[in-house]
Design a protein around this nucleic acid. Structure first.
Length: 559
RNA sequence: GCGCCUGUAGCUCAGGGGAUAGAGCAUCGGACUUCUAAUCCGAGUGUCGCAGGUUCGAUUCCUGCCAGGCGCGCCA
């Protein structure tokens, strides 16, 4: 465990003990013990750590908060915690000031732990399945898919760093109506090219890429039309969706996103899992027949209305394979499921959660993150997108235009439940004001210092051998404090499923570094100070790389 | 009509039961003979959508309303 986390828990413990002792000696009766929460005050003059526990206790102990704080402090034993002073402030905060020695320990921790610095066992190895993107394999991915890819992948990185056992999964809807129509559309274009008179399918995919696919298919399988009608359709559907999946894999890989598993819907159909889940729900008494359809009594688990699982024509609805799929996830041993969906699917959560309960799993083991929409802008003007006319910006085009690093960072800047404005022009043209470059530039500057040190034969000393207490300026101390925050930031981001916290952290760390860089010289200083600052710079490099890697943004050596 | 998300500085957004609500952009003024000025330093701006409620304390939680977005199928 890192010094920052250790210190926090020790101080918390000291407060808990102080509360017990105070209660005993003062005769307080405390029924609901408030949790001792420590926070880093926004205002520097309020010290390094603060707790509001005395104010929390006013509910239990009928005394003025400042009075409670006084009593607590009398019973507080802070030996071995680096706490240098304790004071009561404002309405009843207890502010703690720490000795700088703990900061030097942070630098030693970072050196010792290297890439592992920032990681923790908060998640205790819990097996989590994170499903995201899952775009239909019937066309290129769009910018919302791209946002989902960035957020999902980064959340997985964060949760892994926080000690969860995370698996990334992509669900391929290759067996539904859309896939069928897609196959029919390819087949229609194919026949056109063969000079046949065809009627293009209603609601079919008329965009150019379908025609291009048909052209490729004609070259690969010139004798397709000799098969039976059913065989032709089935072939086009399978060939087309497989082809799109390969395309999606390639696009996502270029975006730095690799999935552990691509789960095919058709496997559910072929493996008889739809019947199995229907049977299970039937046996459990959650299904009934009405108007010729089979209904799932989802209202018994809080849904607004019951849902059809098998239509009166005997075909399953979209829900049925999806329930089968989620059941499958649990049966593969995952304890917690997280799905990332678009805002148009929020109405779907209640029925899915109902199904999960009907299958015997706890409601809170299934979680949905609804990702809000992306508004694409160019120079502040909305980019109009029409899928029918084929005028939409694809994920690939976005990547080609702004690059992986800028694209990922922009998607990760905002909270998932916040609508996102993405200005394409801003992401590239205003590169000087671009936060991505600001962060990467900090890394490049560090590399430059280390490179020049090496060229001059100056070695970065071991932290244990450096005179770290020479690091005394405000800029140096602020920078180390920022470094100390990473483990806690990762835990917070994991717990709250908020990747944007790490994006923010990177920016703040870069900002602290730039400030340090301007105010403190490294090379050419007196040897002991130079050594201490080299240790610091090395540590910043390590932490910045770790945080950027979590975001999937590269850390260039030069710019 | 019902459900979900959002409403915070001129713009884009963080934050969050507590101490004087923060960043970036934009605007203005400074800083390079020295490790990369893609940087730094300084300056100003807020009825935290409106109204009630809970609380020692609400911008934060609850309720209602207003505004914007998205849903509400035997579509997927």
């Amino acid at each position: 465990m890192t010094i920052a986390l250790k210190l926090q828990s020790r101080i918390q413990q000291a407060f808990e003990e102080a509360i017990d002792k105070a209660a005993a000696s003062e005769g307080w009766t405390i029924e609901n013990m408030p949790a001792v929460e420590l926070e880093v005050p926004k205002e520097k003059s309020h010290g390094d750590l603060a707790t509001n526990v005395a104010m929390q206790l006013t509910r239990e102990v009928k005394l003025a908060p400042r009075r409670i704080a006084e009593v607590l402090i009398q019973h507080l034993n802070l030996a071995g915690t680096f706490v240098e002073s304790v004071e009561i402030a404002g309405p009843g905060f207890i502010n703690l000031r720490l000795n700088n020695q703990w900061l030097y320990q942070v630098l030693r921790d970072i050196e010792e732990q290297g890439e592992a610095y920032g990681r923790s066992n908060y998640g205790q190895g819990k097996k989590v399945l994170l499903e995201f993107v899952s775009a239909n394999p019937v066309g290129p991915m769009n910018v919302v898919n791209a946002r989902a890819a960035a957020v999902g992948d980064t959340l997985a990185n964060i949760m892994e760093a926080a000690g969860y056992d995370v698996s990334r999964e992509y669900y391929v809807n290759d067996a539904g109506r859309q896939a069928h129509l897609f196959g029919l559309s390819i087949l229609a274009r194919y026949r056109e090219m063969a000079g046949l008179e065809v009627e293009f399918p209603e609601d079919g995919y008329a965009a150019d890429y379908v025609t291009e696919l048909a052209g490729i298919l004609r070259q690969e399988v010139p004798d397709l039309l000799e098969k039976s009608q059913d065989e032709q359709e089935a072939f086009c559907k399978r060939w087309g969706t497989d082809r799109m999946v390969e395309q999606q894999k390639a696009d996502l890989a270029a975006f730095g996103v690799e999935f552990d598993h691509w789960f095919r819907e058709r496997e559910l159909h072929e493996g008889g899992y739809l019947q199995e889940v229907i049977q299970f729900l039937q046996d459990a008494g959650y299904l009934y027949e009405e108007d010729g359809a089979i209904w799932f009594a989802s209202t018994r688990f809080g849904d607004d209305k019951d849902r059809v699982m098998i239509k009166s024509d005997g075909e399953p609805t979209y829900l049925t394979p999806d329930v089968a799929y989620h059941w499958n996830k649990y049966r593969r041993g995952f304890e917690h499921l997280i799905d990332i969906w678009g805002p148009d699917h929020h109405g779907y959560i209640a029925r899915m959660r109902a199904a999960i309960q009907a299958l015997g799993y706890p409601a809170d083991s299934f979680e949905v993150i609804i990702l809000q929409l992306v508004t694409l802008l160019r120079h502040g003007e909305k980019v109009r997108m029409s899928k029918r006319a084929g005028q939409f910006v694809t994920m690939k085009e976005l990547l080609d235009e702004v690059g992986k690093d800028a694209a990922r960072y922009f998607f990760l800047m905002r909270a998932p439940d916040s609508h996102l404005d993405f200005d394409l022009a801003l992401a590239v043209e205003q590169s000087q004001e671009n936060p991505v470059y600001y962060i990467q530039y900090a890394h490049a500057r560090i590399c430059s210092i280390l490179r020049q040190a090496q060229e001059s034969g100056i070695e970065v000393p071991k932290a244990a051998e450096a005179q770290l207490d020479l690091l005394q300026t405000e800029e140096e101390l602020d920078l180390i404090k920022k470094l100390a925050q990473l483990p806690e930031e990762i835990i917070q981001a994991a717990e709250r499923r908020e990747p944007h916290r790490i994006a923010r952290y990177c920016y703040e760390l870069a900002s602290s570094f730039h400030s340090f860089y301007t105010h403190c010289r490294v090379l050419g200083e007196e040897e002991a100070l130079q050594g201490a600052r080299l240790v610091l710079v090395q540590a910043v490099k390590q932490v910045l790389r770790t945080a950027l890697r979590i975001l999937g943004v590269s850390a260039p050596e030069r710019m």
